[in-house]
Structures are given as structure tokens and as C-alpha cells.
């Protein structure tokens, strides 16, 4: 399998990208669409040292806000992550994820969601099913369409083909969002960490880090 092998045949859902909802809570009935571009680094330790993979991941998504507090978003993304060591095979990753966010205060929301992720190389394929929840602080900057975003949470359900459930799975992100008129821009740094239990004397560790940029348009409804 060529390492230059193209393209993003499927999505990578590395991160429940920041703003799985639009950066600013849209007005009632708001609908938005966005594109994600992420620089992803995937690190795995499975008894043969730390394998590192990296590369761009692209995605498309949309969000709707049917009520005044709830926002539901869908994101499909994918990409090819090249191995840092020549001996390793590149990984192709794709993901489809659905997230919901419920605002409990203008600056605070509870978030939860799930994703199905496929990780493959030329010899094997692995499917991940994730269910995550957490809290998200979204304080706005005074008089600007900018918000700071800090999010943290757990991933209590991780079902991976051929692997036991991890002993620890969490996610966290920090970023900025800018929403002016119909334009939505966001940048974030996020991490997903999976520590699997010892198995056959080997402790498997996986970690996905991403620096994500998002550009979107509010198609209907106003920012709030």
C-alpha cells in the first residue's frame, strides 16, 4: 500500500470538534453548515514503542437548533494519517458523529454525543464506537463576537473491535470561536485519551490530538 495513497476515503472523527455546535448559539430555528480542517496526531503504544501518525483530516457538518437551548450537530470527517516511522503503515480514519449540547446558562452547556469511527491500514480494520459526555464553558468576550471555549468530559462507552474497554477514556478541548453575522470561525486544540488495561503484559495506550479550524455559515436564523 502506497503511503501516498490518497485520500480520504472515509472520515476521521478524531475529535468531537469544537463547537460540535456553531460557535454562538443561534437563534431559535437556526441552521448552519460548516467545514472542518484538522491537523491530527495519533499516538499508539502497544508494546512496540510509540507509533505516531499524523496528517490532515477534513470534514463537513451541520447544526440545527430546534429550541432555545438545545443544539444538535452532525459531523462527518476523514483523512489519512501518515506514519512517522517508515516501518509503520499509514492509517486511514473516518468518523460520523452526532453531538447534542444543552445550554444551562449563557456561558455553560452540557454536551453529549456519540460517534462511530473506523481506523484502518492495509492489513487490518478496526471499528470504534464512542459515547461521550461533558461540560462546556463558553464565556463571550465583551462586545465582540468572540467566545472562549473550554470543554472536558469522559468517554464512558468505548467499544473497540478486539480490545477490552479502556480503563480511562477522556476528552478535553480549549479553543476560540468567532461568529459574526452568518460567518462562523473556530479554532481549537483537543485531545482524546484512551488507556486500555493490561493484557498479556502489555498496556495499550492511544491518544488523538487535533488542532482544528472550522469555517461555517449560518444558513437560517440569527446568532444569539
Amino acid at each position: 500500500m502506497s503511503r501516498r495513497s490518497p485520500i480520504v476515503w472515509c472520515g476521521l472523527a478524531l475529535v468531537p470538534a469544537i463547537g460540535a455546535t456553531p460557535p454562538r448559539a443561534p437563534a431559535q430555528g437556526a441552521v448552519s453548515g460548516f467545514a472542518n480542517g484538522s491537523l491530527v496526531e495519533y499516538r499508539v503504544a502497544a508494546g512496540a514503542g510509540v507509533e505516531r501518525f499524523g496528517g490532515p483530516v477534513l470534514g463537513l457538518g451541520g447544526a440545527v437548533r430546534p429550541g432555545t437551548r438545545l443544539t444538535i450537530s452532525v459531523l462527518v470527517q476523514g483523512g489519512t494519517l501518515e506514519a512517522r516511522r517508515a516501518a509503520d503503515l499509514e492509517r486511514r480514519i473516518g468518523e460520523i458523529g452526532v453531538d447534542a449540547r444543552f445550554s444551562v446558562a449563557p456561558w455553560l452547556a452540557l454536551a453529549g454525543g456519540g460517534a462511530v469511527r473506523a481506523v484502518a491500514n492495509d492489513v487490518a480494520r478496526q471499528r470504534w464506537v464512542l459515547v461521550r459526555f461533558g461540560a462546556e464553558a463558553r464565556p463571550a468576550f465583551m462586545g465582540t463576537p468572540m467566545r472562549a471555549v473550554l470543554r472536558a468530559g469522559l468517554i464512558p462507552v468505548v467499544a473497540v473491535g478486539g480490545l477490552p474497554a479502556p480503563a480511562l477514556a477522556l476528552h478535553a478541548a480549549a479553543g476560540l470561536e468567532y461568529s459574526h453575522g452568518p460567518r462562523i470561525l473556530a479554532a481549537s486544540y483537543s485531545v482524546e485519551r484512551f488507556d486500555f488495561p493490561l493484557r498479556g503484559g502489555i498496556r495499550r495506550l492511544e491518544q488523538v490530538s487535533a488542532l482544528t479550524c472550522r469555517a461555517g455559515l449560518r444558513l437560517r436564523g440569527a446568532a444569539r
Binding site: A45, V191, R193
Partner: peptide, 10 residues
């Protein structure tokens, strides 16, 4: 996040 949430071994 980089210092605490990530796994030092990685």
C-alpha cells in the same frame, strides 16, 4: 490539556 490530560508515556 497537553500536560495533564495526555498520557506522559506517549
Amino acid at each position: 490539556i497537553a500536560q495533564v490530560a495526555t498520557n506522559r508515556e506517549l
